[in-house]
Simulated assay, not measured.
Amino acid sequence: MTDIASLPYRPCAGVMLMNRDGLVFVGQRLDSTLEAWQMPQGGIDPGEDALEAAYRELWEETGVVREHVALVASAPEELWYDLPEDLIGKVWKGKWRGQRQRWFLFRFLGEDADINIATAEPEFRAWRWAQPADLPELIVPFKRELYAKLLEVFANEIASARRA
């Protein structure tokens, strides 16, 4: 049995991608049978800058190129979540107890046709635009607190995007 407390957190970058209507991209994971939707996110490679990882993950998961986004804000600190005990050892080869994430808010400058989830290594089976306030209810339960915190962190930027 693994001592969960001794496991490190996986460094990760996350992207809140907001369109012109103030809606946020969410994708439904391929590897989950749950009706759960999430924003693009993934591991930061050793020596990689968190912002560069965010651009890379966005491209890898949605096909959106950096020319189709503008950085609006970055969370001032990392946000963390723990995996439920029943998932530790099943995901990430048992190396991590959860994730510590650097989040970035991007404005999407492209068109819906610029989004292509059929990437080289697809993560999502479907995608849609969602109301920011709905995000905590769309995500798996163990990430709800983190998504609620993200809405607080980016509250001013979300509000001004929705007024524009």
Rank of each mutant, 00 (worst) to 15 (best):
F104V: 00
A70F: 06
K143A: 12
E77K: 11
E137N: 09
D49R: 06
A118D: 08
W127Y: 05
Q101W: 03
L51W: 05
R144T: 01
W37R: 05
P136R: 00
V153H: 01
W129Y: 06
A13H: 00
Q101D: 15
E157K: 05
L17N: 00
G98H: 02
W80F: 14
I115T: 08
A126I: 06
L7E: 02
T62C: 00
I139F: 04
E111Y: 13
L135N: 02
W59S: 11
E67S: 15
L23M: 07
E52C: 13
W37L: 05
F142I: 07
V24H: 03
A130H: 01
P136A: 05
W129C: 04
V91H: 04
L150E: 12
D112E: 10
S160Y: 01
A5N: 14
L109M: 08
R56L: 09
V24D: 03
E77R: 14
V140W: 06
W129Q: 02
G42M: 05
P84Y: 09
G98V: 08
A164P: 06
K143Q: 14
R102Y: 09
E61R: 09
E35H: 10
G89S: 01
W129V: 02
L135T: 00
E77Y: 12
A113S: 15
V69S: 03
D114T: 07
V26Q: 03
R66C: 04
W59C: 10
G43C: 09
Y9K: 11
D45Q: 13
I158N: 00
T119E: 02
R29V: 10
A5Q: 13
P132C: 00
A164I: 11
F154D: 02
L51C: 07
G22S: 06
R125H: 10
L105T: 06
T2A: 12
A70N: 07
A73H: 08
D112C: 03
A50N: 11
D114H: 02
L71G: 05
L146I: 06
G94M: 01
E61H: 08
Y81W: 13
A13V: 04
E35A: 12
E145F: 04
F106H: 04
N116Y: 07
R125P: 01
V153F: 00
I158Y: 03
K143L: 13
E137V: 04
E85C: 10
F108L: 08
R163M: 09
N116R: 10
A5M: 11
A5W: 08
I115P: 07
R162S: 09
R10L: 15
D31Q: 12
W129E: 00
V153G: 07
A148S: 12
P122V: 04
L34P: 09
W37C: 01
Q101N: 14
G110C: 06
L51T: 03
E152Q: 12
I44F: 01
V65M: 14
Q101S: 15
D49N: 14
G110V: 01
L58V: 06
Q101I: 15
R66P: 02
G43E: 15
E67C: 13
R97E: 06
V15N: 12
K90C: 00
A130F: 07
N19T: 03
E111Q: 15
W92C: 10
I158A: 04
R66H: 08
E61F: 06
A36P: 06
A118E: 10
R144Q: 08
K143S: 11
W96G: 11
H68L: 11
R10S: 14
V91E: 07
R97A: 11
D134A: 11
M1K: 13
R20C: 11
A159M: 10
Q101A: 14
W96T: 13
R20P: 09
D114Q: 01
E157C: 00
